[in-house]
Nucleic acid binder design. Structure first.
Lengths: 341, 341
DNA sequence: CTGAAAGCGCTAACAT
DNA sequence: ATGTTAGCGCTTTCAG
């Protein structure tokens, strides 16, 4: 529990010098710095974050707000953000807003605003204009991951382009009866993500001159179960069974693969299946998918915050930074069976 | 950015009274409290956590240290802890020590000890005696989840009893050739968990007078892939194929189910499979398992910390609190096929 | 390059 | 029940 004063005494300097030597701010002769460092090490001294924060106004802590923790995507984003923050000497305080609306308000009122964090990363969260405004008023940098937030710097993939790419892969292989398992548009959690992915699918079809067929759409709920149930419906159709399925997430795509197997269909011979994500399990299931990189997304969010926190270089003028994605072809897609209609 | 002084002026009282009214410590007439609350609300006042922490020595923040984030068990523990902490007005700072040893030391040296947290929850982490000692020296309450930490209050399931129960379920159904997919004992991550689970398995066999057969053990790595590979080996045996498999985790058990399907075997008719966890996907796969409750474990860890942080009732003298577990029978286990040996 | 001194915004005795 | 008065442990002008 050594304090700065003790270190100062031991090094034969003043507390001010210790502070300068340890923080790197201000000039200290290297000889003095040595002595201070040694004294601090001997005493096992560590600055009190509260005292330091009170004096500087900086907490060296960022809040990460997510709607779920136990879903692959969110966990990975947090993981990426955590390691990037750690490397910068920042802590990560986690707010899981999955719960009730009350819990959500509570976080805003009593925590984020409690001057506990220097900045916030909002993952796939639709903040109200009021909430954004308050953060703005407190001059807290904020970055959104996963969708455009009004007036906020965000990182997001182009959901329309991603699903167009996935659909085009199937079309390129020769498929024309392509089903889509998407989200329930009435439960628009993340920024119209389900809608955007469906739009990309429809765009690709229409660009290829393939008429869209509403019976080829089934909502899932982004879980394996949901994808399984939807695929059962799609693949159990007595006639005009789709030759390919594009699922809006890998978990749903895996559910679809299992549904096909349950029905005795071979993937990809009888039906090609593609997802989005490059989930941990995608490789195991041989799933063709469009990869997005959530850990990278977490890291990039931190980078953005750091440039806002330590303004040095001019900031890019565009609020939204597009995120990378790639088609990863594995063994769940192939050309449609020529012997079938 | 209103400060306590402004609130005091607006309410016509002193800063001390505002502090008392807002924190609930000390007596304030209800009329005064009303005025203070209103003034604070009008000004959008929130206490500065750093100032408050500096004055009280309490951060209202607990550190959670985990080895992985993106595994069902850990995510769930964190989720449980987070919501319990939030309810108590505490924040959760996350330290993911999955990375390098350097990262791990860095966390200890510069973060946990930086007086940033009031207490720490260590999930499935083997801390060195030295690390435990340092936390102790700083008088930081600590609770371990998932295994006994030397001299630390811990919550853990009885791994031996759990796997004995799983194995006994199989024996009770009439199985005698029971294989086990466990962890690689040479990579003892979590507190000899793989070893303990194997011990429980062996105990159950021996209690039933069934000789153990080393060829019926295969290491997995607690992933679906690992379970799949191990089960392939086990079930592909040309003779004396096991009639049942006990996997030390649900993810491995699910991998085993998929392996059985790949081989054209029916679960449970040709082979019964049981796991441990009650993973999110267990129900979907109809997996019989021994449930443990990680969210509950996170919540309980918080409860323990709270009683240490606010000593009121006498503490239990036993350092270890056993955690509940239950056999959940679904459709992946049945009696062995009588027509086979 | 270093030291002295004045806070940062709150809380907790101690008075009243 | 409320006000006064010291700090909590650091950082940062301002001098020297």
């Amino acid at each position: 529990m050594a304090g700065i004063e003790e270190v100062a005494r031991r090094a034969g300097v003043s507390a001010a010098t210790v502070s300068r030597a340890l923080s790197g701010r201000g000039h200290v002769s290297s000889a003095t710095r040595e002595r201070v460092l040694e004294a601090a090490a001997d005493l096992g001294y560590v600055v009190s974050s509260s005292a330091s924060a009170l004096a500087t106004g900086r907490m060296r802590n960022v809040g990460v707000v997510i709607p779920f923790l136990n879903r692959w995507f969110y966990g990975a984003v947090v993981e990426g953000a955590e390691s990037a923050l750690l490397a910068q000497g920042y802590d990560l305080t986690l707010y899981n807003l999955g719960g009730s609306v009350d819990e959500r308000r509570s976080v805003f009122e009593h925590f984020l605003l409690r001057k506990r964090v220097d900045a916030v990363i909002a993952v796939s969260l639709e903040l109200t204009a009021d909430e954004v405004q308050r953060l703005h008023d407190m001059r807290k940098p904020m970055v959104g991951v996963g969708g455009p937030l009004p007036g906020v710097r965000t990182l997001s993939i182009d959901d329309i382009a991603v699903s167009r790419l996935a659909t085009e892969h199937l079309i390129g292989l020769g498929h024309r009866r392509i089903a889509h398992i998407g989200g329930d548009p009435s439960i628009e959690m993340d920024f119209h993500l389900p809608t955007n992915r469906r739009i990309g699918y429809l765009e690709a079809l229409s660009a290829a001159g393939i008429p869209s067929d509403p019976t080829l759409f089934h909502p899932g709920d982004f879980t394996m179960q949901g994808g399984h149930a939807a695929a059962k419906q799609l693949l159990g159709a007595p006639r005009d069974r789709p030759t390919a399925i594009f699922a809006a997430s890998d978990e749903m795509a895996i559910g679809a693969i299992l549904a096909a197997r349950d029905l005795g269909l071979d993937v990809p011979r009888d039906v090609s299946i593609i997802g989005i994500d490059d989930h941990d399990l995608a490789e195991f299931f041989g799933l063709t998918t469009v990869a997005q990189y959530p850990m990278l997304q977490g890291r990039m969010a931190v980078d953005v915050l750091m440039t806002e926190l330590h303004p040095a270089h001019p900031q890019p003028d565009s609020l939204n930074t597009p995120l990378p994605y790639d088609l990863v072809v594995r063994s769940s897609t192939t050309r449609p069976d020529a012997s079938r209609g």
